[in-house]
């Protein structure tokens, strides 16, 4: 694998890990909470980018896998007292399995039809979970306080969740990078550009798309497991919040569709900006309006996103910024 000898690959991971360690070293809990959330968004955006940016399939309801992973893991931890790490992994596998089954069906659809079907899937699952009593129905599920004892109390559990999120973020970014620079990734981008021509060139699009969709469901599912483990409470609304899916798309667009670093930059910029708008007195009420206006300006005038624009503009950037 040539990518493993690529300096920018390692540099990117080291930078992320380095930044993620800062709140731990400083012992700053509120900073750690911010970083936890941003890393989660990085994971959501990067995973969305794998199916959307590389393959060209706009998964509007990708959050369904975040919720699925969260619910499966939560149920295993709460009902069978499974260890968090194991439960999270099983949650990831379950979501991937769901994506595999659904993907075989819906990835035949193209363009707007696919986008709509992913919204439908998310809404169907949310409505189902809201009614499904074993998972707590519309009330959801919550942990007893004693639940965290196995991890040395709630405080340590929060710390553990943070480490898990950091590791997952690094894994997601590494996967995104490896896919992009591989033969597989080249095939995906070929499908994105022209699916019919790709078939004539020897690519089996249905198989590659399903594999990609399955991979892109795995990381958000584990992120969901970590998030709700730390949260101690899971409800259908926050678990399958369509709005969050769309925010992930916005982050991908903001940073740069189809690039590795774009979704990371997009997630950080979006979240920081939102944080600023919400805390700023003048803007706090208007944060949604401003975020919308910003999105529109990007879509209309910088469709390649921040990283994409840099890559198009400066040939030198292309060599080290993927």
């Amino acid at each position: 694998m040539k990518t493993l000898k690529n300096i920018s690959f390692w540099l990117l991971l080291v930078v992320i890990a380095g930044v993620a360690v800062v709140p731990i070293v400083q012992g700053n809990v509120s900073m750690r909470e911010d970083a936890f959330f941003i890393l989660m968004l990085v994971i959501l955006a990067s995973s969305t980018n794998i199916i959307m940016g590389y393959t060209g399939y706009v998964s509007f309801g990708h959050i369904v896998y975040f919720g699925t992973g969260g619910y499966v893991a939560f149920y295993l931890m709460q009902t069978f007292q499974w260890h968090f790490v194991l439960a999270a992994l099983v949650g990831g596998v379950a979501a991937s399995l769901l994506a595999f089954l659904l993907g075989n069906a819906v990835l035949r659809l193209r363009g707007a039809y696919f986008a709509l079907s992913t919204i439908g899937i998310n809404e169907a699952v949310r409505a189902f979970v809201s009614n499904f009593e074993p998972l707590g129905g519309s009330i959801g599920m919550f942990f007893n306080f004693s639940m965290y004892d196995a991890y040395g109390g709630a405080k340590n559990a929060g710390q553990l969740a943070y480490y898990a999120m950091v590791v997952l973020a690094l894994m997601t970014i590494a996967a995104s990078f490896l896919i992009k620079k591989s033969k597989f990734g080249l095939g995906l981008m070929s499908i994105r550009e022209d699916q019919d021509a790709s078939m004539v060139l020897g690519i089996n699009p249905s198989r590659m798309k399903v594999i990609t969709y399955t991979i892109s469901a795995f990381f958000p599912a584990i992120a969901g497991a970590i998030f709700f483990f730390k949260n101690g409470l899971i409800e259908p609304g926050p678990a399958f919040e369509l709005h969050r899916s769309v925010e992930a798309l916005v982050m991908v667009m903001l940073g740069g569709f189809g690039t590795v670093t774009g979704p990371i930059v997009g997630a950080v910029v979006y979240e920081r900006l939102r944080g600023f708008l919400i805390t700023n007195e003048t803007f706090s009420n208007f944060h949604l309006v401003i975020a919308g206006a910003m999105l529109l300006l990007i879509v209309l005038f910088v469709p390649a996103g921040l990283v994409g624009w840099l890559r198009l503009r400066f040939a030198a950037v292309r060599r080290f910024l993927e």
Binding site: G56, A112, A115, V246, M253, L288, A291, L296, V299
Partner: peptide
């Protein structure tokens, strides 16, 4: 432009109107 662009453009309007 491709679908994604128009989907996001109209969604941005959604955010603005809903926000306002």
């Amino acid at each position: 432009s491709p679908e994604l662009t128009t989907l996001l453009a109209t969604f941005s309007v959604n955010m603005m109107i809903t926000g306002l």
